[in-house]
């Protein structure tokens, strides 16, 4: 089947998925979420002011008209303004995405590269004391709360040793660099434990396959077996795991962003949820859903590239 036809067909799935996403967030917001007017007006809310505000926000209109608005914004990407900050949402997202990405992309690239390398290394020495030690270390690292890494890292490396900025962010290259080094390092530390264990399992699954025995019987070197054969065959689950994380990179890392005062999207989403700021929550959910679909299509396409046996249907 033509790859383009496949891509177009998959992308058309965006339509029903988005309709469903709109319905879910609309229902959740209207049934579960507290009255936004109460939160916006705060401690001085009165019945008449709440009614006025509901009218201005359009919350007194029939529900299907409100749902249509959600659908409309999902397809036009015109999300309007935040109820809480009155800022234009698309501008808020643009402004928040840059700091989030300057933190998440380097962290993601470094941690993926490091984790795959370490897992190949431990798989190579599988069953030895080295393998066990590294797995033990990974489990230990996973067992420590992420908050502990952040609190300790900030206190020790930034405050005690003065190697990095304690918190803050400057827009523009290269000014942001000093502010993101420490959070990136912490992110990498946080990711290595689970990632190494995951990749190691995948690689070990491959190592015991028949074709590896055949390769060994042919007299190929261990290096060649690992890098040429095992890694290539392990790529499918790895690609799935890696690519599907990409859409979420835009959200940054909430805890890291708040502790290091990085004005990213994580913080924007959190404060929107806390203030029942429906338009912002809606915009972010829709954008992430669209990105998720696009990247899952990309994953499928990548499969065909790394493994010619895979055919798109």
């Amino acid at each position: 089947m033509n790859i383009w036809a496949y891509i177009i067909r998959r992308l058309l799935y965006v339509i029903p998925v988005l309709l469903g996403v709109c319905l879910i967030i609309f229902v959740l917001f209207n049934l579960v979420s507290p009255d936004p007017t109460l939160i916006m007006l705060g401690k001085h809310a009165s019945v008449s002011q709440m009614e006025d505000l509901r009218r201005e926000l359009g919350l007194d209109r029939p529900w299907f008209l409100q749902y249509l608005d959600v659908v409309k914004s999902a397809f036009t990407f015109d999300f309007g303004r935040s109820w809480s900050t009155k800022q234009e949402i698309i501008e808020m997202i643009k402004a928040g995405a840059i700091p989030s990405l300057t933190l998440s992309i380097p962290a993601f690239v470094i941690s993926t590269f490091l984790s795959i390398s370490i897992s190949l290394f431990v798989a190579f020495f599988r069953g030895t004391i080295l393998d066990r030690t590294i797995v033990f270390l990974c489990v230990t690292m996973m067992s420590i709360s992420s908050l502990a890494y952040i609190l300790f890292g900030q206190w020790f490396f930034a405050f005690k040793l003065g190697l990095f900025e304690i918190s803050g962010y400057e827009f523009g290259f290269p000014y942001f660099i000093p502010y993101v080094i420490l959070p990136v390092l912490i992110w990498v530390m946080l990711g290595i434990g689970p990632d190494v264990r995951f990749y190691r399992t995948i690689i070990l699954d491959e190592i015991y396959q028949d074709y590896v025995r055949t390769a060994r019987a042919k007299g190929l070197s261990e290096n060649k077996i690992m890098f040429k054969h095992v890694l290539k065959n392990a790529m499918i689950p790895i690609i799935t795991y890696v690519i599907i994380q990409i859409p979420f990179l835009i959200l940054g890392a909430l805890l890291l962003e708040t502790f290091f005062s990085i004005p990213g999207l994580g913080g924007i989403v959190l404060s929107a949820i806390n203030s029942s700021d429906f338009p912002v929550v809606k915009a972010m959910t829709i954008l992430i859903s669209v990105a998720y679909i696009i990247f899952s299509v990309l994953t499928d396409v990548m499969y065909t590239l790394v493994d010619p046996r895979v055919r798109l249907k």
Binding site: Q154, W155, F159, S167, G168, T258, F259, S261, P263, G267
Partner: peptide
């Protein structure tokens, strides 16, 4: 400076 968490505020 908007520093939401207390530890970085204190360290700064």
């Amino acid at each position: 400076n908007i520093i939401v968490e207390s530890q970085p505020r204190w360290l700064n």
